[in-house]
Amino acid sequence: MDRPTVTKRGVSGPPLVIVLLAAVGLAVFVVPLFGLLVQTPWGGLARLLSSDVVLDAIRLSLVSSIAATVISAVVGVPLAWLLARVDFPGRALVRGLVLLPLVLPPVVGGAALLFALGRRGVVGEPLYEMTGLVLPFSTWGVILAATFVSMPFLVITVEGALNSLDRRYEGAAASLGAKRGAVLRRITLPLIRPSLVAGLVLAWARALGEFGATITFAGNLQGRTQTLPLAVFVALESDRDTAIALSLLMVVISLTVLVVLRSRWWRPS
């Protein structure tokens, strides 16, 4: 918390090699954005972005990414806590399973979801017969696909924070009479808040950008399952200007949220 401030004075400039390599690194991110900006049909932007297709996609993307983040928080934080705090048999395997969506191609994840939770899937079929609920081709399917790919970001961040947290804070709270729930609420969660917020933001950003698992599992229907990335992909085949306008919109939304959150709440502890 109490860091010495490094003053500019007396510190020589950073090595040129590092600056050059960093510039190349930055270019990897900036050049594609530049390409997008060059292609953007600025004049018709307002008209392009106010079409039904676009407004539906924005609404659906926000709803599903936020819902996926909330679900990730509700079930992902307890999962991270178990992984960090309880030494149960097979913990390494469970950790691997949780992190699998990070490396698995999202399309594979979507196919797996389809085979498991589809109307004819091993879990989906009994679910459908009991409740009539069909997850594919529904907004719940979109949310599930987004949760599948985004929750690992939250779990990995929160577990890391829990592992590096001095356990004695929790011990001190317990010795002062706080029950386990109170310790979690009043000590553990506040102390890992920066990581928790970072994990939530990363999970949300991943959910917002989710494409492969969604189109494979949930399909693509305007207003029901067509999120912004899907709308971009479909529009690329038929309506390039709309595709570019949508891409630009995603960049603006994501960048705004990431920058604002980073400066407001997501400070490294």
Binding site: M1, R168, G171, A172, S175, R180
Partner: peptide, 18 residues
């Protein structure tokens, strides 16, 4: 621990920083 009623002053005090 929460039911033991043992007051502990931990090494380095372990005050809650938040």
């Amino acid at each position: 621990p929460e039911e033991r009623q043992i007051g502990v002053v931990f090494q380095d005090y372990v005050l809650f920083p938040h």
